[in-house]
């Protein structure tokens, strides 16, 4: 049996009286690409934020590599702050890319390896990202805010990889991008999974794209997981076809 790198057990998150997540159970095995699809407002982004500690759990527990990173209980050892979660080997590419607009491309990459003190290693990783995304090398001295949407997404992904994470979380990488660029982004994600040995958990409204590159998929509706299956099966599932693939 493969090793579960990420496991969510009965995760609930409330915003005031509104339940954003209503008891989510989910797991991601090492080396896989897992996608979570669902409509706008289903709670997908909340789920990712709760994993990295940007939202507090009302109930449940999240483990990474077998140890607790978020917990609804009072024990602080089970509930790490965001910087400690990042240090343990998770990276998140946030929704809307979240590049630092008034920093250069190079500085954005440097921030991705903020916790790395070894300067030579930092340089090596930057060089590696330039090899992977040639456009970033050309624009390294430009302010990130001046890049196009697609370029910013590349930068956000490259920056997230700078910490050499074991698990990469992506929040709607296709959002607001042109179809051709979306294809490019997804090809890159699949390449990263193959070549970098990074486990990927992807949240996406573009269900067709997400399922076509992932091994396993979850379908979320208003705070609940309603379906869980191999992505290839989900692509053929009549319910998914009707609701998310527009067929």
């Amino acid at each position: 049996m493969t090793n579960k790198i990420l496991e969510l057990k009965d995760v609930r998150v409330n915003y005031g009286n509104i339940q954003a997540l209503k008891g989510v159970n989910l797991n991601v095995a090492e080396g896989e690409i897992v996608s979570l699809i669902g409509a706008n407002g289903a709670g997908k982004s909340t789920l990712l934020k709760s994993i990295v500690g940007l939202e507090s759990l009302t109930n449940g527990n999240i483990t990474f590599n077998g140890s607790s990173i978020r917990d609804a209980g009072k024990n602080r050892k089970l509930n790490l702050p965001t910087d400690k979660i990042i240090a343990s080997g998770i990276s998140l590419v946030p929704e809307g890319r979240g590049v630092f607009p008034e920093m250069t491309v190079l500085e954005n990459l440097e921030m991705g390896a903020y916790l790395l003190r070894d300067k030579a290693e930092k340089k090596r990783r930057i060089e590696e990202k330039y090899e992977m995304f040639g456009i970033l090398r050309d624009r390294r001295k430009q302010l990130a805010g001046s890049l196009s949407g697609g370029e910013q997404q590349m930068l956000a992904i490259a920056r997230a990889l700078m910490s050499s994470p074991k698990l990469l979380l992506l929040d709607e990488p296709a959002l607001g991008l042109a179809p051709l660029i979306i294809q490019n982004i997804f090809a890159t994600i699949s390449k990263i999974s193959r070549e970098e040995k990074v486990t990927i958990f992807l949240v996406e409204q573009n269900a067709k794209m997400a399922l076509s590159i992932s091994d396993k998929g979850y379908v979320m509706e208003t705070g609940n997981i309603i379906l869980e299956d191999l992505s290839s099966n989900l692509l053929e599932n009549p319910k998914v076809k009707a609701a998310y693939l527009g067929e």
């Binding site: 940007l54 910087d83 630092f100 920093m103 440097e110 903020y114």
Partner: peptide, 24 residues
Amino acid sequence: TRLGKAMRATSQNQPVAALMGINV
């Protein structure tokens, strides 16, 4: 400096700065 850049990053986008591993 590393801390100075972290300061700029935090002022530009605090949650994302935390995602870089910065102790905000």
